[in-house]
Every structure is written in structure tokens, then in C-alpha cells.
Design a protein around this nucleic acid. Structure first.
Lengths: 195, 195
DNA sequence: CCTACCGATCGGTAGG
DNA sequence: CCTACCGATCGGTAGG
């Protein structure tokens, strides 16, 4: 009974991620679903609503994940490893929706746009808290925590640009590789000679 | 005499980067220029052509930079530092165009789309060559060079998401921070305990 | 660089 | 879920 609405959202995720929100027409979605455009509006109210549903579902998954990590795990290094794993798992499990979340959110209309930005900041704060923990434990060392968080998230999010389900790395392998890379940049060092 | 065409392209860079290629209409561009839509077509042939001009100009800058680095500088660490600096400089100097280059290229039409992808691969190859040099010099260590290149470029490209001209870091400072971060992940290590 | 205009397509609705 | 349709806007052209 709620089959069709789920199918419509899934189709929207696929088409929005492939061609972008603006370049995808309701006619494209209807054609993929094998129904008429007008019939879509028995299940949803507007094209904007489709974008909102997709963006906020993924936002909720990210938020839930980072809170879980910050509530449960103790050691900062272990927290970071867990946060990266959960992030990569969300992205790889839900690749189309994640692409929409990352690249199409700017087409959200107010007031949803502002709500969305708030959730993004909340997520970044969760990562920042892990770095602060690491500093207090004397295992991490970061000149600029905001800068570090953005660099970390950039590496995690760029996965959407090259990840293929049929690739030769599992999500956890990708996550662990990235975590090692990140940790080597964060850990307290005795000697770093550069420049 | 070629003032207007330059102004049109600059306006297109700004609007495409702010609202996306598809969501920007030729009427929007004309309004910004203070002329009628039809008048735009005395200077350009199509909306697609505007996107092409922007994407390929930035692509050329990246390609020129990486070839320069790979032709001139000898030491792998120094090459990496230079490549990152040039990359960050292009992005920060030409922020709007770089955003279009990074986020709107998929709206290019064939055969230009394929040409564009080729240039991107060429650029990635340039970075990969630096990592190979580093391995031969026994200063870098990478399990998966393709993975490493994508991670590095992701960190470099994500700059467009948060960089502000009025921020408190100069492009070279950003580049050096990032290079240090990257180098700590690439360098040969005696002891790494993780997991 | 403008006036005047075109066919195509858009998101969405009325009414069943 | 469909038929029939709407006003708005799109990229672009003819002709000056």
C-alpha cells in the first residue's frame, strides 16, 4: 500500500543523483514509474517535497550515527574509527540518496534550507568533539579543529564520486584505510620535518 | 571590444556557481548584464558554450600546472608541495569558475563531456606520478595509489565549499597545512599501531 | 544591441 | 491512477 511512494522516492533518488534535481522533471520520474505525471501527485505534494524527504532522511542517519558514537565509545581514536565507519557505511549503502544529500541540498527552499544547514553543523560539531577528546587525551594534535574536520569530511564525502558497488574494496576496508590516513595526520608526533 | 564577452562569462561563472547550471536561465544572465536575452547571442552561440568555456579554461589551468610540476621539480616531496600550492591557488583565485568546473561538468554535452573526462584523468595521472616518484625515492608508501590520489584531491577540492576571500588563511597557508596533513599520511613510517 | 516571437517543456491542478 | 489542460518559463531565432 505504501509501496508506490517508496518506489517514487527511490526513483527520485536515482534520477536526482544522476542528472541533478533541477534537470530532472516530474515527467522523467513518472516515466520511470510507468505512470502519468498527474498520478505522482496522489502520493506527494510537490517536487520540492521529494528533495526534502531525501535530504533529511540522510541527514537524520548521519546525526544519529555521530550521537551514538559520542555517547557510547570512550577512547578518541576508537570514536574516530567508528564515526568514519558509520559515515562510509551510510554513503555506500545509500549511494544515490547520499549524492543528493551532498550535492543537491542547495535547491531546498526556506525554511527547510536553514533547518538542513543546522543539521550539517550539528554533524560537524560531533566530529569536532572527537578531535577535542583526542587532544584532552594527548593523542591528537590539531592547530585548527574546524579545518581538520572539513578536511576529514571532504575525504569521506568524495567517496561518492568514485565508489562502485562492484569495486574491490568493502565499505569497512575503505573506512579503515581512510581512518589510518586521517590518524597519521592527527596523531601527536615527535619529529616532523617539512619545508 | 571583447569586454562584453568577458563580462558575460564572468557573470555566468557567478550564477552557475551560486545556483547551478540548469537552474540558471539565459534571462538571469541577461538581467545581470543589463541587456536583453537576444543580445547575449551576438556574443555566444548557446548556453552550453558558456559552460564549456568555463570548464575547459579551468581544466587547462590544472593541466598546465601539473605538467609544470612534473617537468621541473625533482624531489617528490617538493613536487607534492608545489602541486598542492598551484591547485589551491587556482581554486582560490578563481573560486566561481572552479566550483562550476567541479560541480557542473556533468551537464556538458558530448563530445565535449568525454574530452573533459580525459583531461581530468590526465590531471589525476600527474598526481599519481608524484606518488610513484616518492615510492622510488623511498620517502612515500602507498598501498593503493589511485585511492591515495582521490583522497588527496578530495581534500583539495572541498576547499571550494568553505573558502572565503575574507577568511584568515592565505591560499599558501591552506596549501601548506594540507600538504603537511597529506605528507604525514604518505611518508614511510617505522611504527604505526592502529586497530 | 533590441523588438517580437516560437515551439517545447516545465510543475502542477480540476475533475473524475 | 488517468484525461485534459493551464500559466509560466525555457533556450533560441528572425530581422532589423
Amino acid at each position: 500500500m505504501s509501496r508506490r511512494i517508496d518506489s517514487i522516492i527511490q526513483t527520485a533518488e536515482k534520477l536526482f543523483s544522476e542528472n541533478g534535481f533541477v534537470a530532472t522533471s516530474m515527467r522523467d520520474i513518472a516515466r520511470s514509474e510507468g505512470i502519468e505525471v498527474a498520478s505522482l501527485y496522489s502520493h506527494i505534494n510537490s517536487k520540492d517535497e521529494l528533495l526534502e524527504k531525501i535530504c533529511f532522511r540522510i541527514a537524520d542517519e548521519f546525526i544519529t550515527a555521530i550521537h551514538e558514537v559520542n555517547d557510547i565509545y570512550f577512547n578518541a581514536e576508537e570514536k574516530l574509527r567508528m564515526a568514519v565507519r558509520l559515515h562510509v557505511n551510510i554513503i555506500t549503502r545509500d549511494l544515490d540518496a547520499s549524492k543528493v544529500f551532498l550535492k543537491e541540498w542547495r535547491h531546498l527552499k526556506e525554511p527547510r534550507l536553514s533547518e538542513f544547514k543546522k543539521l550539517r553543523h550539528e554533524y560537524e560539531d560531533g566530529f569536532r568533539r572527537i578531535l577535542i577528546n583526542g587532544e584532552n587525551e594527548n593523542v591528537f594534535e590539531t592547530h585548527d579543529k574546524k579545518f581538520a574536520v572539513l578536511t576529514i569530511l571532504s575525504a569521506l564525502n568524495w567517496i561518492t564520486e568514485w565508489y562502485r558497488t562492484d569495486g574491490n574494496m568493502t565499505p569497512d576496508e575503505i573506512a579503515d584505510h581512510l581512518t589510518d590516513f586521517i590518524l597519521s595526520g592527527l596523531k601527536v608526533k615527535s619529529s616532523v620535518e617539512s619545508k
